[in-house]
Amino acid sequence: MTDTQEHDPAPRSTLLPPPKRWWGGIGPDERRWLSIAFVWCLILFSGMYIWMGIGDQQTPIESYRIDRDTFQAEAEEFMAAYAVGEEDGIPVVAPPPGEDVYLQASQFQFRPILELQRGHTYRLLVSSTDVQHGLSLQPVNLNFQVLPGYLYVIRLTPDELGEFSLVCNEYCGLGHHVMTGKIAVVD
């Protein structure tokens, strides 16, 4: 034992003031763990940039401010242009591949029902006409926040056939649990 330790013993409780010199350097296992942990932190950090290079699934960042009425008018125009039918009072719309696709969230439905072609990339222009909503595409399990006054551009490439559900996963009022929508993917 060194002199310091004999004359300045550490009180054995975290509830008491520490010895005068509480920085005793880092022990060998701490040094090893700290290095490993820091390297892991750097990997976690670079992981997001690496996925930007190698992954097909990226966080959409393209967004604009938009007036709610403007958005609603543009969405209605889009629905009128490409409507192919109606289900339960909600228009079914089949936009040509490459065309901008409007998806309007409002209390308590997603409009329109979309019919998309597999393998094509669509620009989904999403906004809300009233409160905040959550756009949740299931069972694909992709989830986005929808804000009134903001246009969020989500580039989506459906790569499987079938009918997919939209549910709202941001609490939007007492009808939150009836807010749904649909995307059908066809060949």
Binding site: D56, Q57, Q58, P60, N141, L142, L156, T157, P158, D159
Partner: peptide, 9 residues
């Protein structure tokens, strides 16, 4: 799991 889902961006 992320890689299994639809391409998005």
């Amino acid at each position: 799991n992320l890689a299994q889902t639809w391409p998005v961006g």
